[in-house]
């Protein structure tokens, strides 16, 4: 039950964030560009590509064979977002996160970092559960072991 709720939360946030950004990719490209980490061409390509990755990985969380791969991608995305947000804070950039497209996250960049940390915790929890399931012997392995 806990795993289901956690997956629902993580998947829901990433899928809705991706869809919100895809409604207006140009606005998201400007949001990415405002971080001043990438040239315009890279910001524009990222603005088209990242939301698609978010939506696909969020949906793939519900497909068992793809779950581990999706969790790995979401983990790397969350870590990258955390790094980018921290660098914006460190440089004192007066910008909005852009994490949910036109959606508003209270608390500015700090609020966005908080949301990212909550997501990161959820992803790590799901990853730990998934890995523990993997380390358990399968039914076939058990039958071989106890023969």
């Amino acid at each position: 039950m806990m795993g289901f709720l956690c997956r629902l939360f993580v998947s829901g946030v990433f899928v809705s964030a991706g869809l919100l950004k895809l409604r207006d990719p140009e606005a998201f490209a400007f949001a990415v560009d405002a971080y001043r980490l990438t040239p315009w061409v890279v910001s524009a390509v990222l603005a088209l590509y990242l939301p698609c990755v978010e939506v696909l990985a969020g949906v793939a969380l519900w497909l068992r064979p793809l779950r581990h791969g999706a969790l790995t991608i979401l983990l790397l995305l969350s870590l990258a977002f955390l790094g980018v947000l921290a660098s914006a804070l460190a440089r004192g950039l007066p910008i909005r996160c852009g994490c949910l497209g036109p959606g508003f996250i209270p608390g500015g960049l700090w609020g966005s970092i908080g949301l990212d940390l909550v997501l990161l915790t959820g992803i790590l929890f799901l990853l730990a559960r998934h890995l523990s399931e993997f380390s358990r012997p399968t039914r076939v392995q058990r039958s071989v072991l106890f023969q």
Partner: peptide, 29 residues
């Protein structure tokens, strides 16, 4: 799982390319 992750990343390029081509609000590159 590495294959699954790579598959998701590759698959995402398809809608991204369509979006860049057809979306009325796509950033100009």
């Amino acid at each position: 799982w590495m294959g699954a992750a790579a598959g998701i990343l590759l698959l995402a390029a398809l809608p991204a390319a369509f979006c860049g081509w057809l979306h009325p609000q796509a950033p100009r590159i």
